[in-house]
Design a protein around this nucleic acid. Structure first.
Length: 118
DNA sequence: CGCCTGACTGAGG
DNA sequence: CCCTCAGCCAGGC
């Protein structure tokens, strides 16, 4: 499962989420050309390489449920880590969720085209 | 094959 | 806001 081309495309998309913004698992999958594979998007984030992908970090913590909730159980170590990483870059986490209205990433057409270049 | 498990989703109550 | 449930799809056994 290393060298999994689907994981690599998903990681690539996650790398494009701007600092201070968040995105849902389903949205990541869609942008990676893998509609309906939200669960796969979640799984691949558990396999993010330590050193990042292609020399760049993969900001896994910017990916949330479609509801805006953090996917981990509240109080768990992973939950707290994700919450603090988001807060560090200015994303307000209220309870267990983030306002997608305020922090949701809505890439426009030109931004999507830019992705294909890289 | 079937059966179960997820960093998931949308619709309903 | 909570919870449940059917769909969903990749993997493991």
């Amino acid at each position: 499962m290393d060298n999994n081309p689907q994981y690599e495309r998903l990681w690539h998309v996650v790398q494009l989420i701007p600092e201070g913004k968040v995105c849902s698992y389903g949205q990541v999958a869609d942008l990676a050309g893998l509609p309906g594979r939200a669960r796969l998007a979640g799984k691949c984030l558990g396999y993010v390489p330590e050193n990042g992908f292609k020399g760049r970090p993969v900001p896994w913590y910017r990916v949330l449920r479609s509801s805006g909730q953090i996917a981990f159980p509240p109080g768990s170590e992973a939950f707290e880590l994700q919450r603090s990483k988001l807060m560090d870059e200015g994303v307000l986490v209220k309870g267990r969720s983030v306002s997608l209205k305020q922090y949701g990433w809505q890439p426009d057409l030109s931004e999507i085209l830019f992705l294909l270049d890289h």
